[in-house]
């Protein structure tokens, strides 16, 4: 489906609103142009919103060079070489994840997302299933300090890695600033935002207001708490209390 002239220009204009980690696929949707926002995860994962349907329970392709250091025993029943250097893992497997500093064991299939593990096996329900394609940012967690959508990250891919969820940020300055500036209404988007802000401030501790407006567009709030979030982040930068 080709983008019309106006779509293309629209995309270009919107680019400055969106952080670098997004790629744009303009599509023509009937009487308006809309854009598909796909977030490229640090490990290069891209998943569609059909994640749990689209990824089969059988096929998780482990690339030899890809950053999928599965540190646990993979009790694969049907392991087979799909291509040189690649290995197919299938069936249910036990993996260990380091979540909020604790080692935790989960039973996963190739298709199991990190979000599923957190919510259903560890009862860490702060990260929310809002849009499985990751375009809402509600399932944001930190992996190795980087903001990642747990809904588009396969659990196998993060085995052995350091996962930080909002639940561990109780003593952090970000939630406190969110409370002070009332950056939450229904609160369903809030944990994702809190983690995204934490990651953003780690990278840009002295962000200007302009940078904040440009750098926190991976998350959606339906209740409209953006003005309050902005105030919270500005105060964190100013107060220099974001550590």
């Amino acid at each position: 489906m080709g983008a019309s002239q106006s779509d293309a220009r629209d995309v270009a204009t919107c680019l400055n609103l969106i952080p670098d980690s997004y790629t744009f696929i303009p599509v023509d949707l009937g009487n308006c142009c809309a854009h598909l926002f796909h977030r490229l995860e640090p490990d290069g994962f891209i998943m569609s919103q059909q994640s749990s349907q689209g990824v089969s329970r059988r096929g998780f392709l482990k690339g030899s060079g890809a950053a999928v250091a599965v540190s646990t025993v993979v009790s694969s029943t049907e392991a087979e070489a799909a291509a040189p250097g690649l290995q197919v893992v299938s069936g249910e497997t036990s993996i260990t994840l380091k979540v909020n500093g604790k080692s935790m064991t989960a039973k996963v299939e190739p298709r199991t997302t990190l979000l599923d593990v957190l919510r259903y096996q560890f009862d860490l329900t702060g990260a929310k299933p809002v849009s499985l394609g990751g375009s809402s940012g509600a399932s944001t967690v930190l992996i190795g300090g980087k903001a990642v959508m747990a809904s588009t990250t396969l659990a196998l891919a993060v085995a052995g890695k350091e996962v930080t969820t909002c639940e561990s940020l109780g003593g952090d300055a970000v939630p406190a600033a969110f409370v002070e500036h009332d950056a939450q209404q229904c609160g369903f988007c809030t944990p994702g935002f809190v983690v995204a802000v934490r990651a953003f401030l780690n990278k840009y501790p002295n962000a200007t207001e302009e940078q904040i407006r440009a750098g926190l567009n991976g998350n959606i709030c339906r209740c409209g708490t953006y003005a309050n979030i902005l105030q919270a982040v500005v105060s964190l930068v100013k107060g220099n209390s974001n550590g």
Partner: peptide, 14 residues
């Protein structure tokens, strides 16, 4: 046809 958040557009913070 735009029943996902990537195509049902909502404003973002910016």
């Amino acid at each position: 046809i735009n029943s996902e958040l990537d195509s049902y557009r909502l404003p973002r913070l910016g």
